[in-house]
Design a protein around this nucleic acid. Structure first.
Lengths: 340, 340
DNA sequence: TTGAAAGCGTTACCAG
DNA sequence: CTGGTAACGCTTTCAA
């Protein structure tokens, strides 16, 4: 009842083991029909199935791609953060005939997941891995890169001394276009609502915003623009009294706070102030914000393609890719109120 | 830049390869502290990481569990069918330190997934696999079993000549209790709404229902009870005129049809007829049906445990397990109307 | 056309 | 306590 090996097949078919190997792996150019038949018959009779581990050891290939998140996938999938990425990843992997390993084993007690644990890197089970995470651990990323491990990261992540190949939502352009479209509607005076988060994704938004403001000769005197993540009562007073007609917020939470603050001052969105958000708002309750949407599923697919390109051609340079975000219209942007 | 092997470490540390192997894999009982130190230093210096494929070949173990669905996981995950199972599977796998392989590579053009493709069974990449599917292919199941492959199936699945280890929602008891609770409320005359589906899960519901009806001396003269999946106008007329006060439906769809049919006859649920459903209703819109709920997440966890038990002790007999379902009260069951 | 044999990187058994 | 050495199952080169 033990799993048969090629040797067993060979014996039964009365050929050599290498002949079996050739037939099984499709390298049949120089093997007579008749021999092939016999081998295939023996394979069937014995129920022979190639041993994956041995193949991997030989071939250094698995057709196995890893997916590593620094936190557990599914609970969050619900919340839509990983979910759409996974959708694309699975879809594309299926199309091109790769299996997926979910690295779950590396969970630590605090719910975080590590790549390296007692010196072992489970990731090398796979031919390459897609890393995705809000919570990416930079040290591990650096080590992984220095170890020459094959991976791509979803989302931009800078690590000194390493050139991480990333699939990056193009927040720079998205923020820029958002401002441009507001400007087209006639807005001249802007304010920027900055969160406390310091991460590449936010740096990108800020860069794009600043670009557009400067390029188009617009005005912004908000603390957010200067680099302070403040949404104070004082500033709200200033905003209410000032020339600003448009506000760009880094996330929905800030936008909601703004709405509340404005309402308290008798101002409404978008009648008095237009607001756009640099984050997808999904199908949240309440008003539908004008915002950007990250093509998560597409990014998942692209990540797989980028990874596989490298797996199948290890000499290829690891390169990062920008993926355009769409802007979607909501109900929170209008033309500026006419100033006398 | 090539990945270092144990041999390299051994050379650098000036010891034998087997010493390295021992230290790396924690079998250090009989190796002097001092030697260990040297080896560990060499490991770190070289950035040595054990090769998974080689280990697997040797050990016949991966700490890798497969998950195979006969259709793609994620799209459906959304629809809540696989999702909750996956939640439990991931959670438990993480707890006990196993990784998960998602077998996606086996997709065929029609969206179905096969286990065996041109003779190769990718599943043997994993130490064992959880199969889950509404759409399980019985032939493949049988072959898998005959090949002696280690797996468990979520949901009951009978295959002639094979004893498939399954994790089974206990529909028999659930249906029985459902009827019993209806009987306790005073219902004596029942009707059963049967779907056209012929599958173990439905056979179980029917068995449980029949049990309870007979055991409790209740009455049912419906076509569904006799084995005909009919919900015709004629029968609705009979129902409206007859003594039945309670209807048990195999699924929500049938229950909804029933509601419509009854409404057309001036009858309402639960005032005139009580209705309970042998399927979880989740958070669907409309009335909340009295129904059962399958503890999907728990089943996922149990499946992993059952699988791992076998992986870690292959001599263990493959056994199936029943998992109790809860009954949840909705708004569609009441005491029977009083028949003078 | 076929087959023998040399690895792939580890582990584990046994002599030293 | 240590270090050869023989597998593990497969692929591929090289000779016959």
């Amino acid at each position: 009842m033990k799993a048969p090996r090629q040797a067993d097949v060979a014996r039964l078919a009365g050929v050599s083991q290498s002949a079996v190997s050739r037939v099984v792996s499709g390298d049949i150019d120089r093997i007579p029909e008749e021999t092939q038949e016999r081998i295939r018959a023996a394979v069937k009779e014995l129920g022979y199935v190639p041993n994956a581990a041995a193949r991997n050891l030989r071939n250094k290939r698995n057709r196995l791609l890893g997916v590593h998140t620094f936190e557990s996938v599914f609970p969050h999938a619900r919340e839509d953060f990983y979910f759409e990425f996974l959708l694309g990843i699975e879809e594309r992997a299926e199309e091109i005939g790769y299996d997926l390993v979910l690295f779950t084993s590396t969970g630590t007690s605090d719910g975080r997941r590590r790549i390296y644990r007692d010196g072992t890197n489970r990731l090398n089970l796979a031919d390459g891995t897609v890393l995705l995470g809000a919570a990416t651990d930079r040290e591990e990323l650096a080590r992984l890169w220095h170890d020459g491990y094959l991976f791509v990261h979803i989302g931009r992540r800078e690590v000194a001394g390493a050139e991480i190949p990333c699939i990056i939502p193009d927040y720079v352009s998205a923020a820029d276009s958002l401002v441009a479209s507001l400007a087209e509607r006639g807005h001249r005076h802007f304010a920027y609502l900055r969160s406390g988060i310091e991460q590449e994704a936010y740096a990108d938004r800020r860069a794009g915003y600043r670009n557009a403001i400067e390029r188009l000769g617009l005005h912004d005197r908000s603390p957010g623009y200067r680099g302070e993540p403040e949404l104070t009562e004082e500033w709200l007073d200033e905003l209410a009294a000032g020339p600003e007609t448009a506000v760009v917020a880094e996330n929905i939470g800030l936008a909601e706070q703004l709405r509340t603050g404005l309402a308290a001052r008798g101002l409404s969105i978008p009648a008095d102030v237009s607001v756009a958000v640099l984050e997808g708002s999904g199908d949240e309750p309440g008003h539908r914000w004008d915002c950007l949407v990250i093509p998560r599923k597409e990014i998942g697919r692209i990540a797989i393609d980028a990874l596989v390109a490298r797996v199948e051609n290890p000499d290829a340079e690891p390169v990062s890719q920008l993926v355009a975000c769409d802007l979607v219209a909501g109900e929170t942007v209008a033309a500026p109120r006419v100033e006398e």
